[in-house]
Write a protein that binds this DNA or RNA. Structure first.
Lengths: 197, 197, 197, 197
DNA sequence: TGTTAACCGAGACGGTACGTCGGGTCTTCCG
DNA sequence: CGGAAGACCCGACGTACCGTCTCGGTTAACA
């Protein structure tokens, strides 16, 4: 209810938000993070710079909203089929990071947050945290398929790293390693060490 | 021999290089990538800005040399003891990325190179490529300890990602996950699938 | 009426124009043309350099406006009394060139325009052209006091030269030759060659 | 004898002086005073900048020597024919100021000396003073042709101004007013006021 | 039917960094 | 010692963004 309180005065033009965000993404992909300045967005979008500053206090926040808008877009309900769950999870995870604009922005955002000093947990920078979902998947897996000695966080770190590596290191145009190979690596990591007859 | 030919003209003052690079690293750690400007380095180091521009045409190149100077500092001769080799490898790898200045610079450099358009292989951005050494280690491992079905590059990508994640995501001051855990994960990935006799 | 249309956007702070111009004149007199840099004006006036660049694209234009602001400040209505008209004319002319700041700037401006290549008539450099007024004065003189054989432009050139010489050659502090002597020289030049009884 | 004392060490290469001066004049004419920098002279002449600094401590002195080398090139022995003497005098005077390089340099040199603060007499800046010669000419004129009431310095100032005006105000390429007109103006100034018998 | 508050565009404001260029001085090696 | 080369310190140049601000004019909801 508190949300729907109409503010007095002239309402904002929603189309301005959209045009600004779309142009931001376009510039990120075509010109890169450094060149995605507020003035450049203003020029290319036709939205005046002050209308942009009215919505996003700094260019960082504009870029953040343009690339990682929602807080947690991942919601995969585990089925119990470990390989299938992991595949869907990795796919969803990559979808967030894999969008060209997101890939172009990720490193810049990380660089900025490196020093911003505000309270940070590892993944909040990119507004994507999926640790709980990952744990749920492992918990739903059939007994014997996941070694209880493996710390889920350790495995998640490896996965997060692999996704980041794909995102940050490869130019936007490069052909990506097939997703299935990453899932394989995960399964290998998780399975129990050996199975005494 | 060809190298030692004295160049004509007044020789450069080596201490200027050192002071500039040291100050650059210091600023990266204390103020972060964005604040490590050429003028800031000039002020804090006492080196005049033009002397800096004479050596590094742009601040990016200054930061690169300050943080990832040599091309390939990793050289680990495999002993055949897989766990030990991997441990030394990961440690050496982390040493390159783990230095506070390097951690502070890495994301910024990646962001910049994202669009610089010049020919890039995945790791050249940070001037660290260790794929061949990694393959050597796997090759030297005793038979039966590494599953031949595992593509060494897949495993290396996971490792690189894990290192990157530690580097980029955590603030400089954060306590790191113990290195041994990462080595464990790697060993799990590599070992052959057990077959019931 | 068309003039007074309010321009959109935040109006310029008029006091900035005044402070910058005043400081420019002051520096010209006290430090000279070469030392009257935009940064020096910024420092001494408290006006930020970017506010100066917003108004005058280059320091030459700033100095021009500070020293020879209007296009044609001379307007002397001839009375027919030749000596009196000339005296007032020369006085007005000297007033434009005689201001200390103008004297300090004139040579520098001329030096700059020597090569600027843009379309130039002799006096436009210093934005002072008084040829028409001079001709009016001669035309209004009583018959017989001005030799019709004298080309007014020739006489004007001599006058302009004399004024320039006073302006450019003498240090700002030097005592000037009395104005009346210059008027005398002009009258001598203009009068008819001889008067047959 | 004192002059010919051979200094120890390698003698200076005279051709360097000439090349530097010639290039300086060329640049003055083609690019103007501001663009005639020491580095530009070095590049265009092939003479290294340090060789130039060894000879002329500042660029101003280089330009001075390149444009107004000798101290007093005017020496016109009066013949008593006033018009002829004046014509030769004006011609000689214009020859010094009229050379393209000199015309291009004059304003700049004046601007510089405006503030240099060292003891200055009016014409020393441009190293040309011809007041004494001018007085000699008037003195040698036949009685009755020069009004004794005219202060020779007043007349000389008018002449100097006229020459300066031609030099400074007109672009290097402009067609000049014929010299004879200037001589006429001078004669008009000088002749006695006619008295009805 | 006005108020009224927030919108919109335009653009000025104080700042900071950029990378270039010129000024003169100094240091090195070579002839 | 002269010459060539080039490093050194210093400071001005003009551009580009940053994020804030002040305007006049517009647009809806509310009184």
């Amino acid at each position: 209810m508190t949300e729907s309180r109409r503010r007095p005065g002239r309402p904002r033009d929603k189309s301005i938000d959209e045009r600004a965000l779309a142009t931001t993404r376009e510039l990120l992909v075509r010109r890169g993070f450094d060149a995605t300045t507020i003035q450049a967005v203003a020029e290319h979008s036709g939205v005046h710079a002050s209308a942009i500053y009215r919505r996003w206090p700094t260019r960082i926040e504009l870029i953040e909203e343009a690339t990682f808008p929602g807080l947690n877009p991942l919601s995969v309900r585990p089925t119990g089929d470990l390989r299938r769950d992991l595949r869907r999870f990795v796919r969803a995870y990559l979808a967030a990071f894999g969008a060209p604009a997101a890939r172009a922005a990720a490193a810049g955002l990380l660089a900025h947050h490196q020093t911003s000093g505000r309270p940070r947990t590892p993944e909040t920078d990119l507004r994507v945290s999926a640790r709980p979902q990952f744990r749920d998947i492992l918990r739903a897996a059939p007994p014997g398929s996941v070694d209880p000695a493996v710390d889920p966080d350790d495995a998640f770190d490896m996965l997060l790293g692999a996704v980041l590596a794909r995102t940050l290191l490869l130019p936007v145009t490069t052909r990506q390693r097939p997703l299935e190979r990453t899932v394989d690596m995960l399964l290998r990591m998780l399975r129990p060490l050996d199975r005494p007859t």
